[in-house]
Design a protein around this nucleic acid. Structure first.
Lengths: 223, 223
DNA sequence: TTAGAAATGTACCAATCAGTTAATTGAGTC
DNA sequence: GACTCAATTAACTGATTGGTACATTTCTAA
């Protein structure tokens, strides 16, 4: 029990001084819940812990979000939407296919790196066989920007004769995702076994360049 | 409560007919615990559930393994050791570097695919920041076969002039691991968003070939 | 044979945790 | 300014869960 609550009880102060602010309360809960679920996993997360780190009370979590599972699902949806939105900004249309591809890979690598909480939520969701994602209507029709940009780049590259044909953009996207995702998701176990040199600032830079080179060579026509 | 236990209680049969078999009991517990932890995560796993799926009682889990965390750690160690042992068999010494590399990548891809429970444990361990791995002495000095084989292949390829120099084997290993790991770890969320074509039998085959090609081109000198 | 140690089963407990009940306050509306 | 409903708080609860106390049985060595 927090100190303020205790004080209020012992001296019997009247409850006072609060304003109604549903939106602020809701986003406060979502923010804290995201951090908790990403850090502790679904089962490891305690509703009491969330409420303690919130400006509001546990009752409000249930009032606005129903139950633990619903809260988790809404956290997941919000995280997906935020991260996807961050992919929109990239403008590659004016670049040559090779350069555009390198830029896209490089950006994706960094984008994943910048959103470890999102990565962790996706890991957790996979542990749960994607059960919550299944139930989410909002995520089904998420615009997946990255792959549409990739489709465009690949088509241009093939037309210009600089990319080899016969690859599906989906496969390239899968490869880029795998490399960018793993870099964040498996950092702990990998560095524990093989050392952390790959995860220093310079290590990450050369890792990113390696990934860019990897994908660039894969689609390149010259072989 | 199982039926036999119930019967024994209701009719008050004397306990009888059991043999002492510590090794069988221990390995039975480990087997069930591995499945449970891999499926439910650490917090999601219930000791009662493990004991129910075991031939023995909950008391024995604590008798042999101490507590939940110790049990998890020993499950993790056993899983690492088993999977690492499965990598030993591959004999690449008599093959040309290019072929050996392709074989190693292909094998690693399949090896991961064959051990989803291990992959899930590693995912879970990363969620926990590798805290349990840190405490494990057994894993620290695990022979990591894969990377030693890779070092050998890469050196031979450079000497023979078929691989370009300036790449670290560790980086190549990281790439192979990333692609092979992600293929299992993110199957659910990826297929939910992009469809499951990549995870059909033929999809997996072409994905594996793509990964092989990816790595082969990366180290190739001809460019 | 028998004493002591190792192995096992049963019943139980204290703590934790998701979710609820009930009462109170804020803020528009007529 | 009374009425109404949404927002909020404090306190509570039934069920779950990791872990244990204690009794009992099997094994082994002298």
């Amino acid at each position: 029990m927090s100190k303020t609550q205790l004080d209020r009880n012992t001296v019997s102060l009247p409850r006072q001084g609060w304003k109604q602010d549903p939106d602020a309360v809701k986003s406060d809960i979502l923010r804290v819940a995201l951090a908790e679920f990403a850090e502790q996993g679904f089962s490891g997360t305690r509703m009491d812990e969330i409420s303690a780190k919130t400006k509001t009370s546990k009752r409000m979590i249930y009032y606005y979000f129903g139950n633990k599972e619903d809260l988790y699902r809404q956290v997941l949806e919000a995280a997906y939407q935020e991260v996807r939105a961050g992919e929109e900004s990239l403008d590659l249309d004016h670049m040559a296919p090779q350069e555009a591809l390198r830029k896209l890979v490089s950006f994706t690598f960094d984008h994943h790196s910048r959103h470890p909480d999102f990565i962790r939520l996706v890991m957790i969701e996979n542990i749960h066989h994607g059960d919550h994602l299944k139930q989410s209507k909002a995520i089904k029709d998420l615009n997946v920007t990255a792959i549409r940009k990739l489709e465009d780049i690949y088509e241009r590259g093939c037309l210009e004769g600089v990319f080899r044909t016969g690859i599906t953009p989906l496969e390239i996207h899968w490869q880029i995702s795998a490399l960018s995702f793993f870099n964040v998701s498996n950092r702990y176990t990998f560095s524990m076994i093989f050392g952390d040199e790959l995860f220093s600032k310079s290590g990450q830079k050369s890792l990113r360049e390696g990934v860019v080179e990897l994908v660039a060579r894969f689609v390149s026509k010259l072989d």
